[in-house]
Every structure is written in structure tokens, then in C-alpha cells.
Design a protein around this nucleic acid. Structure first.
Length: 516
RNA sequence: CGGGGAGUGGCGCAGCCAGGUAGCGCACCUGUUUUGGGUACAGGGGGUCGGAGGUUCGAAUCCUCUCUCCCCGACCA
């Protein structure tokens, strides 16, 4: 409706990239830090990450994986062991060469030439090599396997181009590293991890994803198989939202992870690694955000219900606050919970104008906002605003629902669960509506992506899975259309035609899309 | 790392071409007013104009270097 006055100045449809930036500042998620590519995560943004982290950590622990912590610094030589791995990461490494500063000629601090490290240390871009070292010490016998470890850590990759949350120089993540006796066991773990990510994305973040295997050219450096979950953003681009790798015996060989099998023979372990990062916060923004800011799914909302007393700097303010406090107390007393956890209610007592606070929480995307003024109090009611159903389209005004205090309390758990489900359904429908199948020749694909639609979504094509030079050619063809191959979905229909690139008989279906 | 754009009070911007020592809107503070609610009026506080160096009697404005951000590309979670 044109008469609605939205809370953001940029609309998704007008400039998606700018809208994304605006949501981050308007929802108070993060800000620039002055250090290239690094951001300051503010309480609301970090709080969302903490929720994601907590839910993911529970899933990891449920899978019997133990948390550890490994150093942020990795000896340079560690990286030289696995050829593809070096090649993959060498270009984006932060290197520590000195351990002391001294005053230089002009009085400014410089690294002390006397304090140069004998061997430079790199700031971890990922920890396969250093964890491999530890695994080599920890694994002696087949009885030591499987070895299942995980760490929550920051990593640094010196990327050319950065974007808040989606690609920052430093980011936070979880990296699981496991070692197994056999290829089969390791592959099973690889698949278990990607399923765990898929469950977390869909059930916790309300982001529908496609689980599949990455084509050869998109594999992690040093991996034998790479699996991903791919999510569709509102502009139709794909976001790789989590990856799981079967590393074969490549890293075991590089780090010397060997065990004696039941016959007493030395064998190389099969390892896996899998990661899930703060990039997901960007995924939440681009999946659930709207023209009024962010909409946070209840399961990951730091505060699910925010109560705003309408304070007017009058004596009756005390009573309003008391009335609101009783709502919070009632929640505690009844032990109300939603989605399996106690409901998180915030009473925002700040002495700001009611309307200002309301729009602030709308932009932040708290699932439910309650406004309570003297008249509500007199009627024993509350004015409720659902963030996922913000506007009354007819009036162009916020769609308040006036409920009794008790009525609201009893409904709150199911309301939050309904909001969680609705956000997922909305995203899933949009995703499904923007997947195209049945394009069988490359010219049609080219036309499809060079039409007027800014972001036409994803296309599932059939291909013959070429390798080597033939694969290179496919990659180049797609690059000309700004497209990449995303993944080969696990649950695709059987193939029944020719490869869209080579014309040879197709062997599988794969998604192509523009991507972040 | 290449191409484009930008950095001026918390946010959004004007001023820069034709150098003279900083302004607007929102936010903020105080007071009054208003009250189913993104209110109105009046008064007020806050900026060494990203940083360093240079030209000049004088620099937000001119020159040089540098840092950071945004968009597009090449690279990637």
C-alpha cells in the first residue's frame, strides 16, 4: 500500500544491496570498526549470533562431538603440507612476523627488527592443519576412532571484497573436525553434519535450504567431497550457508594421522571438517528482512516479546510500569515457554518516547511488541503488534490487536511458534516459486538470465558432470552470465535428458544461480 | 587487486568549482503543549569538516600521500 510509511528509507525492490546495509544499521546489528573488513557486532546482532550458536552447539553436542579450543596462530610450515590447501588459502593469509614494537626514527611505533619471529605464524583461516597435528598425537589405535572434535573460534581470511556478515575479514564460526577408520564412516559423518546444518537452518533460523554436493570446481581446497546447504535470498541469489567436507586421507597424510587397525597394520585415518559461520546472520537478514527492517525468527530472537510502557513523565507512569512488570512476572510464574525454551520477555523501561521505542523495535524485528498505556491498563488490556503482520493494509497503520493481559499470556507461546512457522513458510514459498526447471539448452538459459528480471532465481539443469578442461569450459560459460553452479541436490528427480552444456547424456541435476 | 563513487556534530545531507575560519533536516537536552500514540511550539548543547604533509596572511574548500566505506568486476564461508 502506497500510504504506508515504512520504517526504512530504502526498499528491497529499489536497491537490495543498499537496503541490506540499511537494515544492519537501522536494526542496530553491527557497525564498521575502522579496520578493513572487520565489524563491531552490537548487542542485538551479536545476541542473534549467540542464539544461533547456542542452538547449533546443542546439536553438535547431541551428535557426540566434543568442544576443544586450538590456537589462533598456526606455524607457517603447517600450511605447506597439503598442496591444494596451501594453494587455496595462500592468497588470503594474515601473517605475524614480529613480537615486539619499538619507537621508529620519527617516534612512531614500528615492529622491532630485532624481534622478528624465526618462523612466521599465520592467523588461522581454518584449522585443519593444526587440529591435524593434535589428531596425529591423539590417534594411535582403531580404538581411538572415531575422534570427534569441534571448536568455536574466530578466523581471518584476507578477502578482496567484504560485506557485513556475508564476507568479513574476521568472522566467527564453528569448525568440526573428525577422524574415522574408513571412508564410509567419514562420509557418513560428512552427511550427518550437513543434515545438522540443514535442520538448524530450517528449524531454528526458518531459512529453507537445499542440501547437495558441490561440483568439483567449488570444492574446499584439499577436499575429496564438499557438501553445502544453499539458501535463496530475497533477491534470488544463492547463499552458501554451511559446508561439510570429506577430506579423504589427504590431511591425514599431511599431518600423519595414522592408526593401527585390528590386524596391527598402520592405516591413514579418513577425516572430515564442517563449518557454519556468522554469515548466517546475513542470511537471516536477506531471508526475513522487509521494508521496515529485520524480522527475527522467535527461536533466535534475543528478546521474543518486548513490552513498551507508554511513559509520559507523569505520576501514573509508576502504575503503568507496575502493570507491565506484572506481565513479565506472570510469564515467569507460569513458566511459559515457546519452541522448547522459556519465553524471553523484555520490559523496555527507557524513558524515551513511546513511538520512538516502537519503531526501534520494529526495525530490530522483535517478533512481538506490546504497547501498554494508561487506558490499556484501565481496561486490563495490552496493544499487541506482530512483527510478521505489521500493517493494516486498509488504514496504512500498524495493525494493533487489543487483548486482555491474560488472553495475551495464554496465547503467547502459540503466537511465537506461529510466527516462527509463518516466516519459514513465507521463505519456502518464495524460494519454490523462484526455482525453474525444464530449461534444456544453453541459449535458453542465457536468455533466462539476461531478461529484464533483476534476479530470476535459480535454475535446476541436467548435466553430464564433465571434468578437467570440459568442466573449465562450463565454468567459463556460466561466468559470462555471472552464474555459478551451486550444488547437486540430494533429493532431485532422476535424469532424463542431455547435458545442457555438453549435449552428452546427463548424469545428475545441478542448480545454477547468481551467488553471494 | 582493477574500475566507479564517497568520507563535514549520533544519522542523512548542503557548502568545495570561483580559499576568509561551518550550516540544514532528523535525533539529543530544557520548558510548555498534546495524548490510542512515528504530536506541536519555543529555547539549547554538540563538529580541530577521515588522517598526515604542503601551498597561502588565511584551507572543509587548492596540491601530494594515506586510511576507511559503498557499488561493479576478478577471489572466496
Amino acid at each position: 500500500m502506497s500510504n504506508i510509511r515504512h520504517a526504512l528509507s530504502v526498499k528491497r525492490a529499489d536497491d537490495f544491496a543498499q537496503w541490506y546495509q540499511e537494515v544492519i544499521s537501522a536494526a542496530d546489528l553491527a557497525e564498521e570498526s575502522g579496520v578493513r573488513g572487520c565489524m563491531v557486532m552490537k548487542p542485538w546482532g551479536y545476541g542473534i549470533w549467540e542464539r544461533i550458536q547456542r542452538l547449533m552447539d546443542a546439536r553438535i553436542k547431541d551428535a557426540g562431538v566434543d568442544n576443544c579450543y586450538f590456537p589462533i596462530f598456526i606455524p607457517l610450515s603447517n600450511f605447506e603440507r597439503e598442496a591444494e590447501h596451501v594453494e587455496g588459502f595462500a592468497k588470503e593469509m594474515a601473517v605475524v612476523t614480529h613480537h615486539r614494537l619499538i619507537a621508529g626514527p620519527d617516534g612512531k611505533l614500528i615492529p622491532d627488527p630485532e624481534a622478528k619471529l624465526e618462523e612466521p605464524l599465520v592467523v588461522r583461516p581454518t584449522s585443519e592443519t593444526i587440529i591435524g597435528d593434535a589428531m596425529a598425537r591423539w590417534v594411535q589405535s582403531w580404538r581411538d576412532l572415531p575422534l570427534l572434535t569441534n571448536q568455536w573460534a574466530n578466523v581471518v581470511r584476507w578477502e578482496m571484497r567484504t560485506r557485513m556478515f556475508l564476507r568479513t575479514t574476521e568472522f566467527l564460526w564453528q569448525e568440526g573436525h573428525t577422524a574415522h577408520e574408513t571412508r564410509e564412516d567419514a562420509l557418513e559423518e560428512t552427511h550427518r553434519a550437513i543434515t545438522m546444518y540443514s535442520d538448524c537452518a530450517e528449524d531454528d533460523l526458518a531459512i529453507p535450504v537445499i542440501v547437495g554436493e558441490k561440483p568439483e570446481n567449488e570444492r574446499f581446497p584439499g577436499a575429496v567431497e564438499t557438501w553445502s546447504i544453499e539458501a535463496m535470498m530475497q533477491d534470488g541469489k544463492a547463499l552458501q550457508a554451511g559446508t561439510s567436507h570429506y577430506l579423504g586421507t589427504n590431511f591425514a597424510e599431511a599431518s600423519g594421522i595414522r592408526y593401527q587397525d585390528r590386524e596391527g597394520t598402520q592405516q591413514l585415518a579418513h577425516t572430515t571438517s564442517w563449518g557454519f559461520s556468522t554469515r548466517m546472520v546475513g542470511g537471516v537478514i536477506m531471508t526475513h528482512g522487509d521494508d521496515d527492517g529485520l524480522r527475527v525468527p522467535p527461536k533466535i530472537a534475543p528478546w521474543q516479546i518486548v513490552i513498551l510502557p507508554m511513559l509520559r513523565d507523569k505520576p501514573e507512569d509508576e502504575k503503568v510500569l507496575e502493570y507491565c512488570g506484572e506481565i513479565v512476572a506472570k510469564f515467569r510464574e507460569l513458566g511459559l515457554s515457546a519452541c522448547g525454551e522459556p519465553i524471553r520477555v523484555l520490559l523496555d523501561k527507557r524513558p524515551a518516547k513511546g513511538s520512538a521505542k516502537r519503531w526501534e523495535w520494529v526495525r530490530k524485528g522483535a517478533p512481538i511488541i506490546l504497547e501498554v498505556g494508561p487506558r490499556d491498563m484501565a481496561d486490563g488490556k495490552v496493544a499487541m503488534l506482530r512483527r510478521d503482520q505489521l500493517w493494516n493494509e486498509e488504514s496504512g497503520k500498524p495493525a494493533f490487536q487489543f487483548l486482555t493481559r491474560e488472553g495475551f499470556s495464554s496465547q503467547a507461546p502459540s503466537l511465537l511458534e506461529a510466527i516462527q512457522d509463518r516466516l519459514f513458510e513465507e521463505a519456502r514459498e518464495r524460494r519454490d516459486a523462484n526455482i525453474t526447471r525444464g530449461i534444456t539448452d544453453f541459449d535458453a538459459l542465457s536468455d533466462f538470465f539476461s531478461g529484464d528480471a533483476r534476479y530470476p532465481g535459480w535454475v535446476e539443469v541436467q548435466w553430464s558432470k564433465p571434468t578437467g578442461a570440459a568442466l573449465e569450459k562450463v565454468v567459463e560459460q556460466l561466468k559470462a552470465l555471472k552464474l555459478t553452479m551451486r550444488n547437486v541436490p540430494v533429493d532431485a528427480a532422476a535424469v532424463d535428458g542431455a547435458c545442457i552444456f555438453t549435449g552428452e547424456p546427463a548424469v545428475e541435476r545441478i542448480f545454477v544461480a547468481r551467488a553471494y
